[in-house]
């Protein structure tokens, strides 16, 4: 799980062009949206694409993202349980 969390931090920085953020700057339990990393709705869509591309997870309802993208830890937990690649 720890390894997946670290991998996710790198992939999120890359996918969302968070140029000035380093993996160690990201608190895996902090909110990704709002006060945390300050991501927006386009970033949420990009995370959905990233999950499909890297882990073979296709969200049927984009609204699920609200729960899954609460934090890196929550996201990693969801990926671990649902990944197909």
């Amino acid at each position: 799980m720890k390894e997946l969390i670290e991998e996710l931090k790198v992939k999120i920085i890359e996918a969302l062009n968070l140029e000035e953020v380093r993996p160690e700057d990201i608190d895996e339990n902090a909110s990704l949206f709002g006060d945390g990393l300050g991501l927006d709705s386009i970033d949420a869509l990009e995370l959905i694409v990233m999950m499909e591309r890297n882990y073979g997870i296709k969200l049927k309802d984009p609204a699920q993202g609200k729960e899954i993208f609460k934090s890196i830890t929550v996201m990693a937990d969801y990926i671990q349980k649902n990944r197909t690649k």
């Binding site: 970033d43 869509l45 990009e46 694409v49 499909e52």
Partner: peptide, 9 residues
Amino acid sequence: YYPSPALFV
């Protein structure tokens, strides 16, 4: 085929 929303905008 992974259309990028961030590029699309």
